[in-house]
Amino acid sequence: MPESESSQSLFATVLASTVHDMKNSLSLLGNQLDTIITELEENDHTRDCVAGIRYESSRINLSMMQLLSLYKIDNGQFKVQISEVEVADFIEDCVASHAPMADSKGISIEIDCEDSLIWFFDPDLVGIAINNVIGNSIRYTRSRLAVSVRVIDRKLAITIEDDGDGYPAPMIEDPEHFLQNINYSTGSTGLGLFFSATVARYHQKGEASGHISLGNQGTLCGGSFNIYLP
């Protein structure tokens, strides 16, 4: 069916360029907001307000990236681009983009990662996944957030823990398919988890493939999110 194929690829192009345009605007918006935040006095209450806008704009950005990626998965156009990643730097980058929001909410973010660790994965896709989780955790945590990295069974394990109330039980049971059960009372759609799980699964090496898991027994006594990459 050449006709439907070409209209599908036209749609993909239109979608990609629209997302690209919107991301450009959002990134300008975000940077201008950063400028405003740094220029406001520490005790100015509008500062929190602006930080809130900044946080939401970065969430829209992430959602759009997820949308585009999920659309590509649906079309079979989705590809991971494996490259060499210095993991400590990668994690620092992820955390740095949340610094303005975390600061304004008085949340401290700790990183535990061996400085010399190098791993091979798609830093853009895993970055979106991680950023999403950090963003959510900032919303639900009380005062602390910890990102730690280990190598377990020849897989890179990135763990994000908070001291909030933890994940709801149904989410923990089946995090990869939580998407089907949108919870309108909390506003959580599980889209981020679905995306993280998909990104992890597309990372394959030999027989091994990646996955995610959730728990409530984190070292900070709140929720804990884990992504494992072979």
């Binding site: 991301k23 450009n24 959002l26 990134s27 975000g30 940077n31 950063d34 950005n61 681009q81 490259s83 730097d89 620092e92 980058d93 740095a96 983009s97 610094a99 303005p100 853009d124 970055g127």
Partner: peptide, 25 residues
């Protein structure tokens, strides 16, 4: 972009990034 084998930049920065990320890089 990443396929370049002969002449490589010192680093790739993916948009969007914040001032803090830039400073760290």
């Amino acid at each position: 972009v990443m396929g370049a084998i002969e002449y490589r930049p010192d680093a790739y920065l993916t948009k969007p990034f914040t001032g803090e990320q830039l400073g760290q890089r």
